[in-house]
Amino acid sequence: MRQLLLFFISMVTFSSLDIHTAIVASTTRLAQKLDCNNAQTQSDINRCAQLSYQSADKKLNQAYQQLLPKLDRSRKQKLIAAQLAWIKFRDTSCEFEKSEYEGGSIAPTIYFGCLEKTAKQRTQQLQEYLQSDP
């Protein structure tokens, strides 16, 4: 009975060490700076595409937030409706674009690339509205 107990304790200790090792390894990986100019793995490329999209989306939201207060109530409501429709279009269009690579490791890069491209296009449109609106 005592040997069984010692065996069980040693197994728990080894399991704990394995978990600790895995946590340290993943933390170390996260702590390494992601070099998007020289991404080496598909996982890194996917993450860089996501970060690039997030940057473009932030600029889009800034342009949108700058435009909203400049519009009268009626135009503001129309912009909000247009933006909601655009978001639905963007998401559906990018899902379609990604579907060609469904199940492949490159699919996230395709998806985030599409999101980034459409966000940049929409940002340009909003900036044009900002320049032309009195």
Rank of each mutant, 00 (worst) to 15 (best):
L126V: 03
T13F: 15
W86S: 02
Y111I: 01
K98P: 03
Q127I: 07
I45F: 01
L67H: 00
A119E: 00
Q66I: 03
K33Y: 06
R90G: 01
A56P: 00
I106K: 03
T109E: 09
V24W: 08
C94I: 02
V24E: 14
L34C: 06
E116I: 04
N61T: 10
D35K: 04
G103D: 02
Q83K: 04
T118G: 05
R2S: 13
L30K: 14
L51D: 03
L4I: 07
D57Q: 14
Y53N: 02
I45R: 00
S26L: 09
A31L: 12
A63N: 08
N37D: 14
A82K: 10
V12Q: 10
T21V: 05
D18F: 14
R29E: 14
K117F: 09
L115V: 05
I19K: 11
L79P: 00
I110S: 03
D44F: 01
Q32Y: 08
S132V: 02
S55I: 07
D44N: 11
K59T: 11
T28I: 11
G104T: 10
K78H: 12
Q50C: 07
Q40P: 03
Q40V: 09
L130V: 04
T92F: 05
L67Q: 00
Q121V: 09
F8Y: 12
F14V: 14
D133M: 08
N38Q: 11
S99N: 13
D57L: 05
Q54P: 01
Q32K: 15
D44W: 01
M11R: 06
D91Y: 03
N46C: 06
